[in-house]
């Protein structure tokens, strides 16, 4: 699971959950998959990012020094930060771990890089 995907995952589909975001991420095993840096693509993703959530993800992935706690202005002109975002969002691959609903504590396992967001019938 890439952290760009994590940025969009919620547990809101669970009955009674109001926001379900951000999910509490635990990383047991991760990999780094190098990919070509495309500044335009990262800029394209920017407005869709939830900054506090990706900052949280950076802390959990031991990359807190790369990502400022507040979203800086004019990121598009800051190539160094764009490259760090690229690394955080597209290159870190969470292979084993879990996502936890902040409201109910329901755990969604991440196995072989696949987050399992399926819910049982009695949960929806």
């Amino acid at each position: 699971m890439r952290l760009s995907t994590y940025n969009f995952l919620t547990s809101k589909a669970i009955k009674g959950v109001k926001v379900g975001f951000p999910l509490k991420l635990t990383i047991a095993k991760k990999d780094v998959v190098e990919s070509e840096f495309n500044a335009t693509f990262i800029e394209r993703l920017l407005p869709r990012l939830d900054w506090p959530a990706i900052r949280l993800a950076a802390e959990i992935a031991d990359l807190a020094d790369d990502i400022p706690s507040e979203q800086p202005a004019n990121i598009a002109e800051n190539e160094e930060l764009l490259k760090k975002l690229h690394h955080l969002l597209l290159e870190i691959d969470v292979l084993e771990g879990q996502l936890e609903c902040p409201e109910t504590g329901r755990v969604f396992p991440i196995t072989d890089g696949i987050p399992n967001m399926l819910l049982n019938e009695d949960e929806v």
Binding site: M1, R2, S4, T5, N7, F8, L9, T10, K12, A13, V19, G20, F21, V33, E34, S35, E36, R44, R48, D50, L90, E91, I114, P115, N116, M117, L118, L119, V124
Partner: peptide, 25 residues
């Protein structure tokens, strides 16, 4: 291939999750 990810989920439940709206081009 580096930039391909996947999620195990019910596709039809995605609109209920709130965050995927307009996420994609």
């Amino acid at each position: 291939l580096p930039g391909i990810d996947c999620v195990l989920c019910d596709v039809l439940a995605l609109p209920k999750c709130g965050k995927w709206g307009n996420a994609f081009d």
